[in-house]
Amino acid sequence: MFSFLVKRLLSGAMIVVLVSMMVFLLFFYGPKSPALELCRRDTHGRCGETSPRLEQYEERLGYNNPVYSEYGKWAKGLVQDRTIYIGSTGYKCEAPCLGLSYRDRTLVTDQLKERFPITLSLAVGASLLYLMIGVPIGVLAARRRGSFADKALVSSTLVFSSIPYYLVALLSMLLLTLSTHVFPTVAYHPFLDNPFKWFSGFLLVWLVMGLYGATAYTRYSRGSMVEVLNEDYVRTAKAKGLKDRVVVIRHALRSALVPVVTIFGLDVAFLLSGTVFTEQIFDLDGIGKWGLEATYIKDLPVVQATALVLAVAVVMANIIVDIVYSVLDPRVRLS
């Protein structure tokens, strides 16, 4: 177990480092200079490929230096305080320093600290609902396989999930908070300040994300459950004289959850790296919206930070999924 963790954390760290390098390479050797983008924005478009202003911008942002030295500076900032100079102004950036946003010269680390709780809250609430709604309905449908209830459930999840997500989100915000006030207004309140306000501010978003995502979980868990219910050991459990509920929950569901856990792990990782549509539509300043805006203007430090969040989340999710596997299935050895 311990050596498994060490091994997986080391290889995970490698992946994270590689991802951060890739982002730098993309910005340095990508088709369009990030400096040009920023220069155009600052001068309302009066900045071209050959204008002398661009030179200044490239110099200022460090694109004239070799990529490894810039990457080195950035990486060193993660463990050591550094001062970033833009022109003649120096900005103090404490470790772990993720750089300075090109757009407004705010510290990326501070922004991340501010935005991550929002995304985290969204991810936790939505993913819990995936399981709490999706799995029980899937199990129910599997047990009544072929019945009217099963067919109605399966086809309604298909219909629901074939409506584009942004439409569902947009309509529910318009109809349920703006025009009717059925749900409290969506807004972020820090959990530690007022847990009740935190809860009510996210309620609608969670329900929209959770219900929409749960449709997929209904289908996964139904399929997996149908398969497991045909297993010999389920028949054995029945032949022992166990109650139906015990057979389904203790004997069938535990096996049926194994494939669901894999998908769930990856889904949580992607939720943690930002939910672009949700944050955009409900106007929540999370990671997703931040990353999207940063990509438009080629804001390297911000894009780098959001890429790192995704990489770390995916790596961690995979490790956790493997541990959960070994807990569910004793045949799986962590090594």
Binding site: Y233, R235, T236, A239, K240, G241, L242, D329
Partner: peptide, 25 residues
């Protein structure tokens, strides 16, 4: 029926590897 199953009438199955639950001792 359930109080009969596994009590006064028991059944043993063909492939014990498949018929025993892989996750429980």
């Amino acid at each position: 029926m359930r109080s009969l199953r596994g009590n006064s009438v028991a059944m043993i199955f063909q492939d014990a590897l498949a018929a025993l639950h892989p996750f429980y001792k």
